[in-house]
């Protein structure tokens, strides 16, 4: 027996709709729980009987959530900017010049990607403490200012950039830095956007390093802020969900505005 193409397409769509629902459901549950009064938190109804903004009011009351959000934006933006700049310079050096040890440098950068955070966490912590970066935003940014991922993605993008165009710039008298800034970078908008988006999201979701480094709640970032509502006596689900919703808003916004670029960058980088 054969199935018609229509039936098959319908079945495929059904599966995809099911999978999408599975993916969206936790987000939906987070948002709707944030509108529930405490008495309703464990109800299985799909929508709160008496929706309320009480949880949001209390989050703002007990925690400097907007300050924390601002810290996080600052930290993620600075990390992204630093990673893109260092990535561009490193990739340019590797692509533009053939020098002894160039390939070794490239391999070492690739290899550094494989080093787990837990290995470098203690030395980084000691260093950050000695440098007086404990409990600061700078302390969150500096150890992540260069990333193998950014270097490698930009390296590949630059390798695909026509060599003749770079040579034409040389013939026109442009120096290396000028060539990078005026000729190469304007033509690498797509890969730079990809790297930026991925860097920003991963910095936003950073949990472990801020947990080690940050002491005061007003210096904290959102992922740490969320933990505030989880205690050994039990979790304050309504508050947690309201704070989590606030924490995911900026990222959701990025997804909405830059949906195409985000999807493309995930596909191209082949990760996650």
């Amino acid at each position: 027996m054969t199935t018609s193409p229509n039936t098959r397409r319908f079945a495929a769509h059904l599966v995809m709709i099911g999978l999408s629902a599975l993916a969206i459901f936790p987000v939906y549950w987070m948002v709707q729980t944030s509108f529930r009064p405490e008495s309703e938190v464990f109800s299985t109804a799909l929508w709160p009987a008496t929706p309320t903004l009480e949880n949001y009011r209390r989050v703002i009351e007990v925690m400097p959530i907007f300050g924390i959000l601002w810290n996080t934006v600052l930290m993620a933006a600075a990390t992204t900017a630093a990673q893109v700049v260092t990535g561009l310079l490193a990739a340019w050096a590797l692509v533009r010049w053939r020098f002894p040890g160039g390939r070794l440098a490239h391999s070492l950068i690739a290899l550094s990607w494989l080093v787990p955070f837990q290995v470098v966490m203690i030395p980084n912590y000691v260093l950050a403490t000695r440098l007086g970066l404990l409990d600061t935003i700078a302390g969150l940014v500096v150890p992540n200012a260069a990333a193998a991922f950014a270097v490698l993605v930009l390296y590949n993008a630059m390798r695909g950039f026509p060599r003749e165009v770079v040579e034409a710039a040389r013939m026109d008298g442009a120096g290396s830095l000028r060539t990078l800034i005026e000729v190469v970078i304007p033509n690498l908008r797509a890969p730079i956007a990809s790297v930026s988006i991925l860097c920003f999201i991963s910095a936003w979701n950073e949990y472990f390093w801020p947990l080690l480094l940050i002491r005061k709640i007003e210096n904290s970032v959102v992922q740490i802020g969320l933990q505030f509502f989880m205690s050994q006596e039990g979790n304050d689900w309504g508050l947690l969900m309201a704070a989590a919703t606030l924490a995911s808003l900026p990222i959701l916004l990025i997804y909405l505005v830059l949906q195409r670029q985000v999807v493309e960058s995930f596909m191209k980088s082949g990760i996650r």
């Binding site: 003749e164 034409a168 000729v183 304007p186």
Partner: peptide
């Protein structure tokens, strides 16, 4: 120099 692929600055 005039290059084979013209090598114009695309942007």
């Amino acid at each position: 120099m005039v290059f084979q692929n013209y090598a114009l600055y695309p942007h």
